[in-house]
Design a protein around this nucleic acid. Sequence first.
DNA 1: GCCCAGGTGGGTA
DNA 2: TACCCACATGGG
Length: 227
Amino acid sequence: MDRALLLCLYDVLYSHYGPQHWWPAKTPFEVMVGAILTQGVAWRNVETAIARLEESNLLDPRALYAAPEDALAEHIRSTLYYRTKARKLKAMATLLVEQWEGEIARFFARPTAVVRADLLGVWGIGPETADAMLLYAGGHPVFVVDLYTRRIFGRLGWITGRESYAELQHAVQSALVADAPLYNEYHALLDRLAKDTCRARRPLCSRCPVATGAIVTCPAGRLPSPP
DNA sequence: GCCCAGGTGGGTA
DNA sequence: TACCCACATGGG
């Protein structure tokens, strides 16, 4: 992954869209809950579930840990696979309460690799969810690779699309400095771009700043034209 | 009515 | 390892 191209794309997106203010949550624990609930669904479906959990005072590790799984499931029906996700939330709360007394800050205040291994050990938390939690709840400098990231990089011709999660993450992280605020904003901007283009079934070359001419004049001046 | 949305775990070849 | 499938709502 080319450092100059990555930074160029970032600059173009940031100047076009501005800061995205991710993650939209009041507490780190709410980020962790949201990271599980958003698996495989659009964020708007998650918002109603988060609101219902908040109304019932369940956006707290101990409260979630103590709540019956079936009752929990009813609160999050809007997020698809709600029974599965209720089980995932309980698994996460079990780790945080039984091993960390519900103290999120202390849980994250360890080396990135150690926290990541703990998260990946929880049933229902895979690499993308673990990294979203590390970055947006714990402030750890890990680049989150999601479907949107793959689509954008793929359409720019930067990747083949067959790379593994770890390969893509390593490619980005080794090209950029380890910088949590940068990774935070970059991921959010890629998401925004993808929603404006890929998901709307719109070609990358219309309505997309990558092809509006901004790229052509970027300092690196080497971004390939979209197909 | 039909398709798909910010993933993960489990099963099979 | 590399697919394939279940999970099971809501909006376009």
